[in-house]
Every structure is written in C-alpha cells, then in structure tokens.
C-alpha cells in the first residue's frame, strides 16, 4: 500500500501487494500525536486493514488449495449459501453445488472431462485488482487477476481421441488469463467466500451445457448470458482505482 493512502479520509481500497505487518507499522510510525478520536479512527482503520488482509489471504488459500488439489479444503473457504460461477454454470450452496464443482468436477481431473478444470492458479499483481470492504465490515468485494493452467478433454466420440485417452492424452492443456470477481462475507471473526465468479479473458473450451443431476458434476443452472465469459464487464462492481484514496 502506498504511504499516501494512509493519510486520506475516504473509503479503504486495498491494492494487490499490500502487507499488513508493514502497513500496521507505518500507521503507528506516522502518528506520534493523536487525539482520542484519532485513536478510534485508527482502530477502525486497522480493523479494515485486517479485513483486507483476511480477504487477500482467503483468496491465496483458495489458490493454494487448488494447486494442491485439496478440493475438500477449498470447501471450508466458502459460506454455506455460497455460489460459484464457472464455465457457464452456476453452482449453488457450499454443500451442494460448490461441493459438486470442486469435488465431483475438479476432483475428477484425471478422468479427462469435457468442461475445463483449473489445475494451477497463479495470482498476478495487476493494477485493476482491488478489494473493497463495505461499510459495517460485514461484506467485501474483490477483483483478482490470475493466470490459470487449465485443461479439458478434446471433443469426445472420435477414435483418435479414444486412442489418445489410453496413453494418458486426449486433453488440451492451456494457460489463460482470467479474473475472479468475488463477494465475501464475514461470519464472526472469519471471512468466507459468498460468491466466486471466474471469467477467462479468452475462453478456449466448452462451457457446461447441462445441469445437475443430468450432469453429475454439473451446475445448478446455466448462465444464460455467456458474453460475460468472453469479455468481463467493465466496472462491474469495482471501478478501476488509479490510486488508493
């Protein structure tokens, strides 16, 4: 976080790369003489900084669990009423749709699935990344740019693909850039993911075309407007922040 951001009076927006410990040290170093009300404001600010860091750590945990194929651990990051938008599908409920996506779909990556699976997620430092803590500190929204290693089956029903599957192939692997636009909720002292929406900047694979239970790992419903998969809507809920104010 830039030093200038600490001197403002407006909303807190965190930009990627911040580190709470350094920030907290800066807060106190820059405030040798404070009134009681200043101290209250600083306490509130610190709380918000802790929230920002918690959200960032939550996203990092998501990436870490995904990269370790720890799909059950990913579930622990979600709120009970969470929903995930992924590959043209909406997965609803931590123990229903979200579990289905991560355990039944991502968890079967070795079986070669027609819809995409993320196999590695790399956080990118991006000027458009942002986390915004709502007033009241009960919810937050965030945008994270990522580089994703993904794979999906080559369209099935072709003898050459059948042959490729038998030698461990039959998949297309690619690296894409994408954006997570997430909503978080604080449950007591813990932040959880309430909504996780991933959009590839240039999708390369087939989105989900059927829903659960017809598709055992499928979504609860399909996104009707797939244009968002191709071009993330600008200024959805987080406008670009040129600087933190």
């Amino acid at each position: 976080m830039r030093q200038s951001s600490l001197q403002g009076r407006r909303s807190f927006v965190w930009k990627a790369g911040a580190a709470l410990s350094a920030t907290a040290a800066s807060v106190f170093a820059g405030a040798p003489e404070r009134t009681r009300s200043d101290a209250g404001e600083m306490k509130a600010r610190l709380a918000r900084l802790e929230d920002l860091n918690a959200v960032r750590q939550l996203h990092d945990a998501y990436a870490r669990h995904l990269n370790e194929c720890a799909y059950h651990d990913i579930l622990d990051l979600f709120a009970d009423d969470a929903r995930v938008e992924f590959a043209g599908g909406v997965f609803v409920g931590k123990d229903r749709g979200v579990r289905r996506l991560f355990v039944e779909h991502f968890g079967r990556v070795k079986e070669v699935l027609p819809e995409p699976v993320h196999t590695f997620l790399q956080r990118e430092t991006h000027e458009h990344d942002a986390i915004e803590i709502a007033a009241g500190r009960l919810t937050a929204t965030a945008r994270f740019h990522v580089t994703v290693h993904a794979e999906a089956a080559i369209a099935p029903g072709c003898p050459l693909v059948d042959m490729a599957l038998q030698q461990g192939g039959g998949v297309i692997k690619w690296v894409e850039t994408g954006i997570f636009e997430n909503v978080y909720a604080r449950e007591g002292a813990t932040w959880k993911i309430r909504q996780l929406a991933y959009r590839a900047e240039t999708p390369r694979s087939t989105p989900f075309t059927s829903t659960y239970p017809e598709h055992p790992g499928g979504p609860d419903r399909l996104l009707t407007d797939l244009s968002g998969l191709r071009r993330p809507p600008a200024g959805l809920h987080l406008a670009r922040r040129e600087e933190v104010v």
């Binding site: 369209a155 050459l160 998949v171 692997k173 690619w174």
Partner: peptide, 8 residues
C-alpha cells in the same frame, strides 16, 4: 494436425 491437442 486436426485441432488443438489432436495430431496423428
């Protein structure tokens, strides 16, 4: 080369 990932 037929399509991405599929070459014989």
């Amino acid at each position: 080369h037929y399509s991405p990932g599929l070459t014989s």
